[in-house]
Every structure is written in structure tokens, then in C-alpha cells.
Design a protein around this nucleic acid. Structure first.
Length: 597
RNA sequence: GGGGGCGUGGUGUAGUGGUUAACAUGCUACCCUGUCAAGGUAGAGAUCGCGGGUUCGAGCCCCGUCGCUCCCGCCA
């Protein structure tokens, strides 16, 4: 129906007769002369319909309106000097239309297709998602997503990886997120679970000897939504045999670097990616997924504070609580009322995440100046100099102090970092900053249940040299677990798995799982592990988050064709919905009256 | 489960308890042969998300409710 797309005609096509088809993007009716911007997925081409030379076409063109689907035949005309539109890829030419065919008229859309509106109501966008997706911004995002996944398939395929599909109808697992359940018609009262990730299956594929597996796969978790969390989302699920941690890191780092450099216009801040220990990430940035597009580190100064006269800090420090300082360049040059206002704002923010207060010092811009801020007087001059040296302070810097229980300090540091970076414009939106977070503790203490919980999952291998600690001090055991963080988001997580039975059983014991229970829940895994399991490990980057960051979008809904709302609903189709009683009957399900409105 | 934000012509916004709810854009009609975010003239289009309350009087204040969204909990 078309000889060319709306994005491909150039000056060297001049005088060719072409047929184009697409949507009416914009029309400019000048009476005897009508201009129409015709749009398809590939671009926009200007049509000219001249009443004098093509009266029939002109008559039809008069009726055309926005978003009508039309086909035109005409001649490619090179535009004369002065009439070239440099904003348009095809701006060197236009089509002198001979014939117009209306393929389908269209109602006025409920919002603009031909311009990007910032605050468009999301409910409206979702209700008419097919129109939303027609907009340039969304087409760009969805196509970028395609380019990313295509690149991944080629990259991994070239390196000996096999893409293998795994079932969606699988078995519920008691650990982890809430499962989406699917009732069985054939087995009354029994349910499948949609996989939270193909974790078990990919490990079984290693037992099966595929050695290098990947899958771009949907995962399901029935938990509450966030801007970076949907009930169904897509992972690049990977697993490799006969590898150590370093092999996995190298492969993923190479892949991510190649994606950024080949399919995006983003600037990679770090090459190679920095590696942070979990503990250091928390101590410096208060987060296990720090945004490293900007610095704003926190420094521990407990040893200095303990020698100061400021009892809040000194007491905390001697009690082993952290005392942290963040250095914010240049703000110290602000005048008193600016400083006061900034401090007030930051303190309010700090209090909102549990801090009792927030201290500061403003370092003068000149040698002779005085340090401003109420806590300055508690630090002797030599102590101040030691402090400034610790944090690398320079004249005109603004120092923020926080001290409290460790989790609160982390929260404060993280919150203030994000806020200040935003407020001070420290973020370059073109940049992507990947960083590895390594050496997570294998367990977290569960106060409620009074037991150790796996911090990743229960097949994660401990550091070999930490294995003895399993008996003596489980909290100190480091896991061979790794996360990839980017711009403040966790974009991948993985681990080297346990492949030896006695260690696995020890882990079960620590997390309060009797061997018999373990057999009940993971019997198929344990059995499989007895049949010659290679050492293996893997990782699973989140495709939605990755593409979101590469597209510079603020949430993953913008890179998912048909996302769900925060209430996990599809506003376009109206899902979830009630079903016919016969359907429930077949599934052996009854709805309790008290659950209905 | 909890806390915050938003909801006003189709769309995006303004609107200090007081007359006929304003602006931009889109839409409709007409004019217009070099526009490209076209321009000009005229016009239609809102029971201010919904329900209740306070008040002489509510888009505005209060309570409830629905929807979207951000966050906490949750997310091995």
C-alpha cells in the first residue's frame, strides 16, 4: 500500500512517483493550497495538495482531519531554497499529491497525539493506551526497548548462550514475594503459581548441562506497586556453569557497556564499573543502590567527634553509633539567611526519615573568615582542621552532620544525597553510572521470627573462606551475591549458587528449615543437585528498569506497552474483571459473599 | 494496611467564601496559493470527580468516597 515510508524520502528521490500511507499528523489549510504532515512509524513527510493542478485530490483533502488514515499518490518535489524544513528528516522534499484515498476516518482523539504534553492524566493515557502509544515519545521508548532486547539476544547468542523458555504455570514457593495463583481445573483445590522469576528452572537447566542459558522473560509478583515496580515485569534471566563471580561480572559489564554504546545516545560515566562492598556503599551513600552520577559522599568522623565538646556526637560516637559528614561544595558561600533556609529545609527532610536533628558548618571562603553554624564552637581549631582534611573540605563548602542509630543515619544520608543532587542540579540526565555492589551479608536477622533470613535467596553460596562462620557468627558470613546499580536503581541481582549438599543443608538449618520441610518445598531441586551439578551462578537484569534509565524516563510504565496502574488494574480492557459463574464452577472456586462490596 | 499530592470545557492550566467560572490549545464554520506549532474572523463546548455537611452564599472550608500518582510497610 506504500512504496516508501514517511521517513525515507530525500532530495535524490525528486521527480519519482510514490505512494505513501499513514496518519494525518497536522494539516495547514490555506484555501487553494493544503499542506498535510503525513506521519507513519518512520517519520513525517509534508504533502502539498494544489487546487489548481489537482482539483479532485484537493476536494478530498479538504475533509481530512487529525489522525485520519490516508493513502496518497504523488510526485516527490525538491523544495526550493528557503522552503526547506530543517526540523524534518524529510524536510528537503515534499509530495505533490495527485490522488487521495481515505483508508479510515478517525474521531477526535481525547488528547494530543502530535505533541508531547507533560502532565497528561495517566488514567486517560491508560484508558486510551493505543493512542498514547501512537505518540512519538512512546514510540521512541518502545522501539528502544526492542533494540535493547534484540541487542541482548545477538550479544548472548554470539557468546554461546541458549535462549530457553520456561513454564509460566509452575509451583508456588513459600519464600519471597506473594505469588499470583492460577487455579487448576483438572486438580480441584490445587493451584499453579506464576513464577516470581525462573530461578529454580534456570538452575535445573545448569544441572541439565546447557552451561549458558538466558531468557528474556516475564516475572510476576503480587506486591504493591512503585514507579519502578509492576506486578508483571521483564527480566533478562541468565545462568552459567563452571564460572566464578568474576566471569559473571565481566560478561554483564561487557553487555551493559555495549548496549549503552551501541543502541543509546547515553554517556557511560564509568568504564570499567566501580565495585563497592555492600558495607561501604551503605557507609558512604546510605544505600545499596547509590546514584554515582554525583559525588556527595558521607564520611565517618566518630573518632573526631568523640574529642569534640558536642556531647550529642561525642556520646553517640562512644556508644559506637555513626557520626557522618557530607560535604556540599560552594554552598558555604551563601549568606546567612540562605544558609538558614537551606538548613531548615534539609533538617525537615532528615526528620521525616527519623533523624532528631541536623547539624551543619559553613566553611568561609576566605582564610580570615569564621566557620558559621552552631556546632562550630564545640570543635577546637585543630580538630576542625582534622575534620576538614578527613572530608576533603575546601573554602566555601557546606558540611552536613548527622548521627543516630545506623539505619537512620543511612536513611538520612541517602535522602539528603538524592535531594541535594536534584536541588543543586548535579545530575546530568544524559549520563548512566553503573556500579557493582558486592559482598552482601548472606543473612539478615529476622527479629520477629527470631531466625536468620537469606538476604538474596537460599541457594546463594557463601564466601568459601566464610563457611566456618556459619557455625559461629552467621551475620558475618558474606554471600557471593552481586547487584548492579545504576543511577540510584537496582538494575540486576545475582549470585554464585551453592552446589554442595552439606552447605545447602547447613543453610537450611540456619534459616529454620528442617531437612524434611526443605524436601517438601524444594525436593525436586535437592534431588537434582545429587545428579552431577556443575558449579554455577547467574544474574537477572531488569529490562524495564534498564530501558527506563536508557530512555531517561521517570518510571517503568513509560517503557511498558500496556502497564498496570498502582492498583494493579488495566484501565483499557478493564482487568481484573468478574467472570461467569460457570468459569468459577469449572475451577472449583466459590467467592465468599463477605469479600464482595 | 498507612501517609502525602492531584482531580475545573476534549486537553493543559488560572481561579483571594461573593455578579454570567478565566486563559491557552484543540474542535466546528468561513476566509486565505508557500505553510511547516501556519494565520485571520466567528462559534460551540464546564451541573468544577462523586456524595454529604458548614454558610445568606461553596470550584474554594469540613467529612466521606472514587480515580490517578508519590512514599512507608511489602518486594527471597
Amino acid at each position: 500500500m506504500k512504496t516508501h515510508t514517511c521517513g525515507e524520502l530525500r532530495a535524490n528521490h525528486a521527480n519519482q512517483t510514490v505512494t505513501l500511507a499513514g496518519w494525518v499528523h497536522r494539516r495547514r489549510d490555506q484555501g487553494g493550497l493544503i499542506f498535510i504532515d503525513l506521519r507513519d512509524r518512520f517519520g513525517i513527510t509534508q504533502l502539498v495538495i494544489n487546487q489548481e493542478t489537482h482539483p479532485d485530490a484537493h476536494t478530498k483533502a479538504k475533509d481530512l482531519r487529525g489522525e485520519w488514515v490516508v493513502q496518497v499518490e504523488g510526485t516527490v518535489i525538491q523544495r526550493p531554497d528557503g522552503m526547506v524544513n530543517t526540523n524534518l528528516e524529510t524536510g528537503a522534499i515534499e509530495i505533490e499529491v495527485h490522488d487521495v484515498t481515505v483508508l479510515n476516518p478517525a474521531k477526535n482523539p481525547p488528547f494530543y497525539i502530535n505533541k508531547d504534553e507533560e502532565n497528561l492524566d495517566e488514567a486517560l493515557r491508560m484508558r486510551y493506551r493505543y493512542l498514547d502509544l501512537r505518540r512519538e515519545r512512546m514510540q521512541r521508548n518502545i522501539i528502544l526497548r526492542h533494540q535493547v532486547t534484540r541487542f541482548i539476544r545477538n550479544y548472548l547468542g554470539d557468546r554461546g548462550f541458549v535462549e530457553i523458555e520456561t513454564p509460566f504455570l509452575f509451583k508456588t514457593t513459600p519464600e519471597g514475594a506473594r505469588d499470583y495463583l492460577v487455579p487448576s481445573r483438572v486438580h480441584p483445590g490445587k493451584f499453579y503459581a506464576l513464577p516470581q522469576s525462573p530461578q529454580q528452572l534456570k538452575q535445573l537447566l545448569m544441572v541439565a548441562g546447557y552451561e549458558r542459558y538466558f531468557q528474556i522473560v516475564r516475572c510476576f509478583r503480587d506486591e504493591d506497586q512503585r514507579g519502578d515496580r509492576q506486578p508483571e515485569f521483564t527480566q533478562l534471566d541468565m545462568e552459567m556453569s563452571f564460572v566464578e563471580r568474576e566471569d559473571v561480572l565481566q560478561l554483564v559489564e561487557g553487555l551493559m557497556t555495549a548496549i549503552v554504546e551501541n543502541v543509546t545516545d547515553r554517556e557511560l560515566v564509568y568504564k570499567p564499573f566501580p565495585r563497592l562492598q555492600y558495607r561501604d556503599a551503605m557507609e558512604r551513600y546510605g544505600s545499596d543502590k547509590p546514584d554515582l552520577r554525583y559525588d556527595l559522599q558521607a564520611f565517618e568522623i566518630g573518632d573526631i567527634a568523640i574529642r569534640s565538646g558536642f556531647s550529642v556526637f561525642a556520646d553517640n560516637a562512644s556508644a559506637g553509633k555513626p557520626v557522618k559528614v557530607m560535604r556540599v561544595p560552594q554552598l558555604g558561600a551563601w549568606n546567612n539567611s540562605q544558609i538558614k533556609k537551606l538548613h531548615q529545609e534539609l533538617e525537615e527532610l532528615a526528620k521525616s526519615v527519623g533523624a532528631k536533628g541536623l547539624a551543619y558548618m559553613a566553611i568561609p571562603t576566605e582564610e580570615s573568615g569564621e566557620v558559621r553554624g552552631p556546632i562550630g564552637k564545640f570543635f577546637a581549631n585543630e580538630l576542625k582542621l582534622e575534620l576538614f582534611e578527613r572530608v576533603g573540605a575546601e573554602p566555601g563548602d557546606f558540611l552536613i552532620f548527622t548521627s543516630d542509630e545506623r539505619p537512620i543515619v543511612y536513611e538520612v544520608v541517602d535522602t539528603l544525597r538524592r535531594h541535594l543532587a536534584q536541588q543543586l542540579g548535579l545530575i546530568d540526565p544524559k549520563q548512566v553510572a553503573f556500579t557493582w555492589i558486592l559482598d552482601f551479608p548472606l543473612f539478615e536477622w529476622n527479629e520477629d521470627e527470631h531466625r536468620w533470613d537469606p538476604s538474596h535467596h537460599l541457594f546463594t553460596s557463601p564466601y568459601p573462606e566464610d563457611v566456618p562462620l556459619l557455625d559461629t557468627d552467621p551475620g558475618k558470613v558474606r554471600g557471593l551475591q552481586y547487584d548492579l546499580a545504576c543511577n540510584g536503581y537496582e538494575v540486576a541481582g545475582g549470585s554464585i549458587r551453592i552446589h554442595r549438599r552439606e552447605i545447602q543443608e547447613k543453610i537450611f538449618g540456619l534459616i529454620g528449615l528442617e531437612v524434611e520441610d526443605a524436601k517438601q518445598k524444594f525436593g525436586h531441586m535437592l534431588e537434582a543437585f545429587e545428579y552431577g551439578t556443575p558449579p554455577h551462578g547467574g544474574i537477572a537484569p531488569g529490562i524495564d528498569r534498564l530501558v527506563m534509565l536508557l530512555a531517561g524516563e521517570p518510571n517503568i510504565r513509560e517503557v511498558i506497552a500496556f502497564p498496570k496502574t498502582q492498583q494493579a488494574a488495566d484501565l483499557m480492557a478493564g482487568a481484573p474483571s468478574e467472570v461467569f459463574p460457570i468459569q468459577l464452577e469449572e475451577l472449583h472456586i466459590a467467592i465468599r459473599d463477605e469479600d464482595l462490596d
